Amino acid sequence: MLLRRALFYWQFISAFLLPSWVLIGRGIIRAGEGWDFVLYLVLCPILCVAMLAVAGLTVARKQVRSTRAVSWLDAGVLAVWHISIILYGFVASSALSGVIVVVAIIAFWVAAWQLFTETRTRVKNAFSLDPIDAGTYNAKTYDPATDAGRVIIINPDGSKEELPDR
């Protein structure tokens, strides 16, 4: 539970930290000079938006919000995705960039599917509830002489119209 809760908070921090790390890491190892660095300047904000989208879909689930922890499936996909991004800051590999893109697509669809199935289950449960039987109340006309058939009057305009005294 501690790992899943840590990933819940980490996914928002990482949306800004990891794309910045890719830029810094590319600069440190000097892989991608010139136009490649310009390409990183374009792709890193896209990575940030993708990470925020996945985090948003994940947090949209009630189960995740109530426990403040991602599911184990989310934890696995996010761990692979974030570790591959961290490694990409160290190693210049086109295969690793392909892994990042594929895992990003998987992370998006896993988060969307879990949101869909959880919401579908909650809606089905809400519609399958039996209606609440509040009973019936038969209002009769009020006869102050016999005090039979007391009536509760609710005026929508808020006025305090009262029944005649007995």
Rank of each mutant, 00 (worst) to 15 (best):
E161K: 03
I85Y: 04
L78P: 02
T136E: 11
A53L: 14
Y40G: 07
T58E: 12
L52E: 08
C44R: 04
E118D: 15
T117K: 11
V101Q: 09
A69L: 06
L43E: 08
A69Q: 14
I154E: 01
T121D: 15
A60W: 04
L23K: 04
I85A: 03
I13K: 01
A112V: 02
N155D: 13
I83D: 01
V49L: 14
A79K: 04
L2V: 06
T119P: 00
S14V: 03
V70R: 02
V102T: 14
I29V: 09
T146V: 05
V103R: 03
D130P: 12
A145E: 15
S71P: 08
W21N: 06
V42W: 06
T67S: 12
V38L: 10
S159P: 04
P164A: 13
V103D: 03
N138H: 14
A112G: 10
S14D: 10
I29L: 06
L73M: 09
A134G: 13
V110H: 07
Y88M: 10
T117C: 09
R61I: 12
L7T: 07
P144H: 11
L57D: 09
A148Q: 13
G34H: 09
E118G: 14
W10N: 04
K160M: 10
T121E: 15
Q114Y: 08
R65Y: 05
Q63F: 00
W35Q: 13
V64Y: 06
V42E: 07
A60F: 02
V80R: 05
D36T: 11
A148K: 14
D165H: 02
V80W: 05
L18F: 01
S14C: 09
A31Y: 05
V99T: 02
V91I: 09
F12V: 00
V103E: 00
I105P: 02
D133K: 08
K62I: 11
I86Q: 03
E161M: 08
V54S: 01
T58W: 08
T136Q: 08
S71V: 05
A104I: 00
A126F: 03
A60R: 08
V22A: 07
A112R: 08
V64E: 06
V102N: 07
A6N: 04
I29E: 05
G98M: 09
P164E: 12
